[in-house]
Design a protein around this nucleic acid. Structure first.
Length: 426
RNA sequence: GGAGAGAUGGCUGAGUGGCCGAAAGCGAUCGCCUGCUAAGCGAUUGUACGCCCCAACAGGUGUACCGCGGGUUCAAAUCCCGCUCUCUCCGCCA
């Protein structure tokens, strides 16, 4: 969220940046609401001041046994007027706030201008694409042939976009989760978190999923609980309404969670395989940093996520999202895209973002600066480290053999009871 | 699910209608003092929003905030109602 004061002072910048995002904002409406609010505020505060002084007066008179009924009835009127003004103030602030909550973050100056995904500059490539002496197969064929992924049972039990993992498939997924968590906690300095998978409305609003993207979320009927679309939500909310010590920054958290997404509006997209599921597993990295270091921290966080693919020896490329492709809350985002030979394409496997103070304002996450003793908002960052289901896809497709078996990357074998190969069991 | 207790500043904790943005203690910061350490003494110590002032830093001033939302009253941390959360006991339960 952008604050009124900041918006008021940077109208032109905001107007220009929102246009670059392709999401023009009606700033006249803001000006109107903001000015209206301040008008009412001044009037009501003047009246309150009067009431406070006169009330004190009344108290003193009464103590001396003097009559004060005239003052009391006049203050009755003032109070009634205050009540009226309070109501219209509240209404105006609600409108203003609702409006502010729908304005996306301002893209960082290093973000390229562009209309959509095709305009995202590629930052780097890593790894050699594997060459095959046979046409590489997509993971859904491999998984079904090996009897480790059961799409039709998943659909029977729950519906489309749900998958049942079986045997080595389930083990491989679990191995990936543990491998990722271990790497981030022992080598990259993250503290492991296991968060609630259901959260309340305040948490969803703090990180930016609400109010604008309610249709992407699963909600518990009749209760104010939402299924998390990413561990970013509960983990960022760890410090909601808190004041952190500057010396306790930066803070790094790594969390495994299941993630739930309604995927409204993606009908017919990625209908086969594990790529787009209503429920999937993810290890999420979240950082709370001082404003001065957040872009440095974004580079490190992205490298931490890339390290997983490097150790699994999966080729990838990293792109920087352009203004037109940038998410609502992010100021800058790197997407890491793994090479999937079965689909002859790079597919997103991680998205690493700096939100600057956007989420911290919504969530009121602050720290006291050591230099001047003032409060300031922290910067929040997060990134997948990594999307587990998609990583499993990448392993299957990159490590497939001519006979349809899968050679398990060495880095995972400590987590697969030493098993080095998945072969058909029937 | 049933019964009860509670929620006050960074922390502990007092405060049952006006003199309370809130005692006291702890902590923290700054200064003094003691040869060092410990102790001691003094001062300071919330946030948000608005207005004024300023190039800016700062400053002045007003309002709000004692879990959240409403009500009573000239006046609410204090009285009333609803909600949320925490704790204790009973029941149930992985």
């Amino acid at each position: 969220m952008l604050e009124s004061k900041i918006l008021r002072q940077n109208m032109d910048l905001v107007r220009r940046k929102m246009a670059e995002r392709g999401q023009p904002v009606d700033l006249d409406r803001f000006t109107e609401l903001d000015a209206g609010r301040r008008d009412i505020l001044q009037e009501v505060e003047t009246l309150r001041n009067e009431r406070n002084t006169v009330s004190k007066n009344i108290g003193e008179k009464k103590k001396r046994g003097e009559a004060a009924s005239e003052l009391m009835s006049r203050m009755g009127e003032v109070s009634a007027r205050i009540k009226e003004l309070d109501e219209s103030l509240k209404k105006t602030e609600e409108n203003l706030n609702a409006f502010l909550l729908t304005i996306p973050n301002i893209p960082h100056e290093s973000v390229a201008c562009g209309a959509g995904a095709d305009d995202n500059p590629v930052i780097r490539h890593w790894g050699e694409k594997p060459s095959f002496s046979f046409p590489p197969r997509p993971h859904w064929e491999l998984g079904e042939a090996l009897d480790i992924l059961d799409f039709s049972r998943g659909a029977k039990i729950a519906g489309a976009r749900f998958t049942l993992y079986r045997g080595m498939g389930a083990l491989l997924e679990r191995a990936l989760i543990n491998f990722m968590l271990d790497l981030h906690t022992t080598h990259h300095g993250y503290t492991e978190i296991l968060p609630p998978f259901l959260v309340n409305r305040e948490s969803m609003t703090a990180t930016g999923q609400l109010p604008k993207f309610a249709e992407d979320l699963f909600k518990i009927e009749g209760q104010d609980y939402f299924l998390i679309p990413t561990a970013e939500v509960p983990v960022t909310n760890i410090h909601r309404d808190e004041i952190l010590e500057e010396k306790a920054l930066p803070r790094y958290y790594a969390a495994y969670s299941a993630c739930f997404r309604a995927e409204a509006g993606s009908y017919g997209k990625d209908t086969r395989g594990l790529i787009r599921q209503h429920q999937f597993n993810k290890v999420e990295l979240v950082k709370f940093t001082r404003p001065e270091t957040s872009y440095e921290e974004l580079e490190k966080l992205t490298a931490d996520a890339e390290e997983i693919l490097k150790r699994l020896n999966i080729p990838f490329r990293t792109v920087s999202l352009c203004t037109g492709d940038l998410g609502f809350s992010a100021a800058k985002t790197y997407d890491i895209e793994a090479w999937l030979p079965g689909q002859d394409a790079y597919r997103e496997i991680s998205s690493c973002s700096n939100f600057e103070s956007f989420q911290a304002r919504r969530a009121s996450i602050r720290y006291r600066r050591a230099d001047n003793g003032k409060m300031d908002f922290v910067h929040t960052l997060n990134g997948s480290g990594l999307a587990v289901g998609r990583t499993l896809v990448a392993v299957l497709e990159n490590c497939q053999q001519a006979d349809g078996s899968i050679i398990i990357p060495e880095a995972l074998r400590p987590y697969t009871k030493g098993i080095d190969r998945i072969t058909a069991t029937r």
